[in-house]
Nucleic acid binder design. Structure first.
Lengths: 183, 183
DNA sequence: GTCTATACGATGATAGAC
DNA sequence: GTCTATCATCGTATAGAC
């Protein structure tokens, strides 16, 4: 009975969600190790013990946070997946770093934190993008589609990191520059 | 008496160096927060107390590690600084991510860890590179030297990260591809 | 300079009542 | 499901002897 299992998994009490949300925010802002469970409890306005009832231990809570992020990430990728025209896909890909709203910075901060801090395997998130980029260049029949994709991916990742870290003074100019170069 | 002050600072006992080396390795491999001082002491084959005699506290030890890294980083940058021909400077810059030897991966891992994990300001390390790249494109009189430099920087940073994380199967092919594109 | 012993606070986790 | 109380352990840091 897969369906009912999934259904059960989706049911969350209000407090359970508060914990998840608080943990997400704090892990992103201060890091996993730097965040005591007591601080999460306070932010979520629940008792500390409740965290362990729901998520077994601190790492279980992190897993739950990451699972939730995966879903958001898939949603983020939908536009490029739905588009069929390779030129248009490319345009969407280049827009990605610039589409990250300030409210979503925490999401990406956490992703990069985990990547380095916890040696968490974030490839299930990065691989789909790399695959999309490769498909683009295969369709465009360029000389070295895989290398082309790798380079674009690295560049977009580097740009995204700079944006999240608020190191780019004029985002719009950079976006236009990239569009002119690639599309 | 600046000179004698500096001279004093450079004197280190053998055990002090062992501590610094062990801390560097562990911070890079497992992260600053994840590394207990006892573990550092054991790796350095000294007593735990000695760490605090020499470095006051754990954060002081981190500072000492970062200071030492700064020196290594400057050495790394020397080739591009010494070169005058912009085309040649560009070639050197593109080589950078590929010049990182496996033994030096820890160095860069720690740099990125600190960047995200501790919100450590690593700009004193990244800014000089960005400046060099900007100078290159100013000398080459391209249309948008600052944007051009920013994009190259992001790309090289992204590539370097992939290399450190051992995600690139064929480094040589990627290097040749980049050289062909940029130089 | 170096070691041993130890204090002390913080933190993850459990037990039991409601 | 939720809270309060509590524990055990770990980790930073200090004191004092050699």
């Amino acid at each position: 009975m897969q369906i009912s299992y999934l259904a059960v998994r989706l049911v969350m009490t209000a407090k359970q969600e508060q914990i998840l949300q608080a943990a997400f925010e704090l892990f992103a802002m201060e890091g996993y190790r730097n965040t005591p469970t007591l601080k999460i409890a306070k932010r979520a306005k629940v008792s500390e013990g409740l965290i362990f009832k729901h998520y077994k231990n601190k790492h279980g809570l992190l897993t739950a946070v990451v699972d939730q992020m995966s879903v958001k990430f898939d949603e983020f990728l939908q536009p490029i997946k739905k588009e069929n025209n390779p030129k248009e896909k490319l345009r969407i890909a280049i827009h990605f770093p610039f589409l990250i709203k300030e409210e979503a910075f925490n999401f990406w901060k956490l992703l990069y934190r985990l990547k380095w801090e916890e040696a968490y395997d974030t490839s299930r998130m990065s691989r789909p993008i790399l695959e999309e980029l490769t498909n683009i260049f295969l369709a465009l029949e360029v000389e070295s589609p895989h290398l082309e994709a790798r380079v674009l991916y690295s560049m977009l990742e580097g740009v995204a990191m700079s944006i999240i870290r608020k190191e780019i003074p004029n985002k719009e100019a950079l976006l236009q520059f990239l569009l002119k170069r690639y599309v």
